[in-house]
Design a protein around this nucleic acid. Structure first.
Length: 472
RNA sequence: GGCCCUAUCGUCUAGUCUGGUCCAGGACACGGGCUUUUCAAGCCUGGAACUCGGGUUCGAAUCCCGAUAGGGCUACCA
């Protein structure tokens, strides 16, 4: 953030703050849209105001119901509740009235396009070129506004020309509907992406023509793809639905995204705080600490946040999150899964890793079945004696066999073998033990493995390794 | 091209308004080490940035000007 003397102070004295998130349902809800929605939401909540969701579906060709559904679902999943909901396609009457008003007052006019450049070039990006449209009569003046994040911004609107505000009385276009709705819904603060800065002067002109005072603007920086271009579907933007499917926790996403472009004021002497709940963020948020430059979305850091949140989850909470990510052979409600939770929690950073870890080749694949492995692997590399391996395995087996089935806990397992392992050399005892249970080079510690497998299976696997050693 | 926005480690950022305490702090990622039955975790530790050029000043990451670079907008999309 850089200094800006003319950056206006937030006007918190306004009676009721009203903000909105106004997406067009033309694609899956992705990180960029989400961050914008989040900031508008936080600001509204912080000021005890209202947060409105408005679906801007005036582009009939590109708007799709499935995208609208996706936006609503994603908002719900992420915990951003809105107080009011509108759909522009249902508000044609209101817009028609405004267009009428604008025409009657001379601020707009029906324009004959038959000779226009667009027509001569014979194209528009959506739909047919029309023989007539409704244009705004540009007063060609200088317009300025005080952006809460960027300070004063001035434009000369002359170069904008008489822009189109509707294709017909029934088909208004972005600038018009956006302004009419913001007026009608009593918007006090427009918090939106930086890509709208250039649209602002046109919208201010419409506000003025309609006899209204424009709201306060706050243009937040864009979220960037790794190539530093605006995050979009074709540049690696991942939908929030996909993040859910990969196994991210909503709270982690919220926390991470809030810190993309915003940072709490540091407290001298205190370490910087990064892990924050939505509630804490709402408490400390402030628009004048929002960054002015764009931020790249970095998955590595998101993963770290997610891991932090996973490690804080209670067992039952973890189990319910995990249930969607389990292979068929194990259920989130099974006792075995209960025994697996602790180790799972420390291994994964994304819930999707659970499936990977438990699937063949994964680090916890042994839980399902013992992979085939060579007897050589049972030998501790620092002391590769077959006799010792056999001796230690037999001893461990007898020590564990003495524990009853329902007393077979991590503590009791450790208690049973630890003195022996310490006396004989931990590597010498533990390596063959762990290998007998897992058949894998990498796995959790053997005590944990035995606990997860359970008494019967543990004993059985040691048995089979003993046989393997004899055969070799 | 025109208009507008922006510029601190690879990434997210603190510091900039109120110039000295900053040969720039934290986090993620990466390297090394410790611990250790493997992996992970944990702990310690290392490398890593003020875009450039002028100016103002005793002193500039911080103020001013310019350049450069990046981004956005330039639709009968939103």
């Amino acid at each position: 953030m850089s200094p800006n003397t003319d950056r206006p102070k937030e006007d918190t004295k306004r009676a009721t703050v009203v903000t909105r998130f106004a997406p067009s349902p033309t694609g899956l809800f992705h990180a960029g849209s989400y961050r914008t929605a989040l900031f508008a939401y936080i600001f509204a909540r912080q000021n005890g105001g209202r947060f409105i969701l408005r679906i801007e579906d005036t582009d009939k060709e590109r708007s799709k119901k499935e995208f609208e559904d996706n936006i609503i679902e994603s908002l719900k999943w992420l915990g951003l509740e809105y107080d009011e909901f509108y759909r522009q396609s249902e508000r044609t009457e209101i817009y028609r009235e405004s267009i009428r008003k604008l025409i009657d007052s001379g601020h707009a006019y029906v324009s004959d396009e038959s000779q226009s450049v667009d027509k001569l070039q014979g194209r528009t990006s959506s739909g047919q070129a029309r023989s007539s449209v409704i244009r705004f009569r540009n007063p060609n003046k200088k317009v300025a506004f005080d952006d809460l994040i960027r300070g004063r911004i001035e434009f000369d609107t002359t170069e904008l020309g008489d822009f189109v505000i509707a294709k017909s009385m029934e088909e208004p276009v972005f600038h018009l509907v956006n302004v009419v709705d913001d007026m009608d819904m009593g918007m006090t603060h427009i918090i939106r992406g930086e890509d709208h800065i250039s649209n602002t002067p046109r919208q201010i002109l419409i506000f003025e023509a309609l006899g209204a005072k424009p709201p306060i603007y706050a243009h937040i920086p864009l979220l960037l793809s790794t190539d530093r271009s605006k995050l979009s579907k074709r540049h690696g933007a991942v939908s929030m639905t996909e993040y859910r499917e990969r196994g991210y926790i909503p709270d982690a996403l919220v926390n991470f995204m809030a810190l993309l472009g915003w940072h709490p004021a540091p407290t001298p002497g205190e370490p910087e705080k990064e892990i924050m709940s939505l509630e804490e963020i709402i408490q400390t948020f402030s628009l004048d600490r929002v960054q002015k430059s764009g931020a790249i979305f970095d998955d590595a850091k998101l993963n770290w946040f997610n891991k932090q949140y996973i490690s804080k989850l209670g067992d039952s909470e973890f189990a319910s999150y995990a249930s969607a990510f389990l292979p068929d052979w194990i259920a989130a409600t099974s006792p075995q899964f209960g025994r697996l939770i602790q180790i799972l929690r420390e291994k994964i950073s994304v819930l999707g890793d659970i499936k990977t870890a438990l699937s063949p080749g994964g680090e916890l694949a042994f839980v399902h079945s013992l992979p085939d492995f060579h007897a050589e692997m049972l030998l501790w590399k620092k002391d590769p004696s077959k006799e010792k391996a056999r001796m230690h395995l037999e001893k461990v087996q007898s020590l564990l066999a003495a524990i009853s089935d329902d007393a077979f806990t991590a503590e009791s397992i450790k208690g049973a073998i630890w003195d022996y392992a310490e006396a004989e050399g931990k590597g010498d005892v533990l390596w063959p033990f762990r290998m007998a249970l897992t058949g894998q080079e990498r796995s959790p510690d053997p005590v944990m493995c035995a606990f997860i497998l359970g008494r019967e299976e543990t004993l059985k696997r040691i048995d089979s390794s003993l046989k393997k050693l004899s055969a070799a």
